[in-house]
Amino acid sequence: MSFVTGTRVEPHISIAGPRDYFDLLKPRVMSLVIYTAIGGVLIAPGPINPVLAVAALLAIATGAGASGALNMWYDADIDAIMRRTRKRPIPSGRITRQEALAFGLTLAAFAVFTLGIVANWLSASLLAFTIFFYVIVYSMWLKRATPQNIVIGGAAGAFPPMVAYAAITGTVSLSSLALFALIFIWTPPHFWALALVKSDEYAKAGIPMLPTVAGPDRTRRDILLYTLLLVPAGALPYLMGFASIYYGLLSGALGLMFLVLAVRVYRHRTGDVANKIAMDLFKFSILYLFLLFAALILEKSLVHLSVLA
């Protein structure tokens, strides 16, 4: 006698490997988070315990990875539509949404708890808020609701240096807020340059990016306006006195190049040339942030090493 009747439902048996779960963490975003967070660690005044700093950076990176997994859990439907995201673990069928949700929540809890016991509960709270902001405020609310999605959502990507600084010092300072401002203002021109080229893909997925909703002309104007804000924001570490004149000169030169490219994007509006110039700006924006943080990391490392010596 059997208590179960009717057709037998085949159980879902996963064939996902560790690599698929690693892909859920958005490793490229995670590496950028680690990179900017190192900047946040090194601008902290006073001696830094290297073991605790590395442990804190690992916890922050894990928190960023958890946000990535939770973002993929929520955005699986639109990821399946866009060519750029179609091969992610959930749309390609290697991992189910439930598995991604459980993985993301578990990692998020471990990351926040670990940062709390390794560093302090202020930085752990900031990390928890960053995850909340990225998943709830950006992914679940703003992304599909407003063309200002990445302007406000950009805060999630700008928090890591602040979290890292708080992990080392136990406080939030103007210098860590300067790094927050730099990434926050950098985000819109960076994403909109890409969105100008990929606007069809975003429109197909129903995401209200600025070029799709307000048109490419308005987007070009806004890229230029944010770039005008970015030039002084990039120089803030020097202007506020926690970076050297060499950093100041580099930020000025890079800011000027950013501005030249933004003006070119503003002036060339049609054809393949316009797309190419927009992609040039997108690629340069990555180099811009990379070089500014590299300069900051280099000179702050030298300062810390000379103190140790």
């Binding site: 048996i13 996963s14 064939i15 996902a16 490997g17 560790p18 779960y21």
Partner: peptide, 9 residues
């Protein structure tokens, strides 16, 4: 394949 994936996980 399922067994191999499970072992790796």
């Amino acid at each position: 394949q399922q067994k191999k994936s499970r072992d790796h996980r």
